[in-house]
Simulated scan of single mutants.
Amino acid sequence: MKQGRIFLWVLGLFYLANLLGTLPFASASLFSQMYPGFVPDAATRAFRLLSDAWAVVGLQLGAIGIVALLGARDPLRYLAVFDIVIATEVVDALWDFYSITWSNLATAFGLTTLVIHPVWIAWALYAKRAVVTAAR
């Protein structure tokens, strides 16, 4: 049970940090690093669309993060959160691969995120197994 609590606690904090990092005031300065050649001009539609899209991603991760923090109290009751994290990380990894390959995401930035996704997936699988085993 302890592994599940630790996982959900750390994941919740990480996802909430992602929420903060994807909000327009924080992400605007990263766009030129993430997308080489993109001029971050708040007056353009492209900038506002990109900024809004990142904010939505952050809000979704933040929502999962809040549920994970609540679930840290009783990981067995919140077992589905582990599967939600796995699904989220798989989809995000596919999106990052697409972004590197076809959407001009900076390779170093994309590869960094591609390393993070399997770590969360593996840890979620391990922690879920630990919770289920402890409950028996």
Rank of each mutant, 00 (worst) to 15 (best):
D83S: 02
W123H: 09
S29Q: 07
G37Q: 08
W102D: 13
L50M: 02
A28E: 07
W54D: 14
V81Q: 14
A127H: 00
V56A: 11
V119T: 12
Y98M: 14
V90W: 13
D83V: 06
A53V: 00
G21I: 04
T133P: 05
A130F: 13
R73Y: 11
F38W: 15
L111P: 05
A43V: 01
D96E: 01
L16K: 12
P24L: 03
R5A: 10
Y78E: 01
Y78F: 14
W95K: 15
W120V: 08
F97D: 01
G65A: 11
D83C: 04
D74M: 09
T101D: 03
A72M: 00
T44K: 14
W95I: 04
V115W: 03
L30M: 00
L16F: 13
L16Q: 12
V90I: 11
V67W: 14
V10L: 04
I84W: 05
T44P: 07
T113P: 05
A55L: 04
A134Q: 07
T112V: 03
D74Q: 07
A72G: 10
A68I: 13
V90A: 10
Q60S: 06
S29P: 13
L20F: 05
A122S: 07
L13V: 11
L11E: 06
R73N: 05
T113Y: 11
L70M: 13
F25C: 02
L69C: 15
F47C: 09
N104G: 14
A93E: 02
W54I: 09
A127P: 01
M1V: 01
A72Y: 07
I86G: 09
T101E: 11
I116M: 04
N104R: 05
L8Y: 08
I86P: 05
A122E: 00
L114M: 07
F14D: 08
V115D: 08
V85A: 05
L76I: 07
K128L: 02
V115I: 09
F14A: 15
D83K: 00
Q60C: 07
D74Y: 02
F7L: 10
G65D: 03
R5D: 09
L94P: 02
P24T: 06
L50R: 09
W54M: 03
A134N: 07
F47I: 06
A72W: 05
I6F: 11
R5T: 10
I100L: 12
D92H: 10
V115H: 09
S99M: 15
V67A: 03
F7W: 10
G21N: 10
P118I: 14
A17G: 04
L50A: 11
A72P: 01
V91D: 08
V119I: 06
R73L: 12
A42H: 13
P24M: 11
P40S: 03
Y126R: 15
A28H: 12
I100P: 14
P36E: 00
P36I: 02
N18I: 00
A55M: 09
L125M: 02
G71D: 06
G4A: 08
G21W: 00
R48C: 00
I100A: 01
D96H: 11
V81T: 12
A124Y: 02
F7A: 13
L69F: 08
A130Q: 04
Y78P: 04
G4N: 01
D96W: 02
L11V: 15
I66W: 12
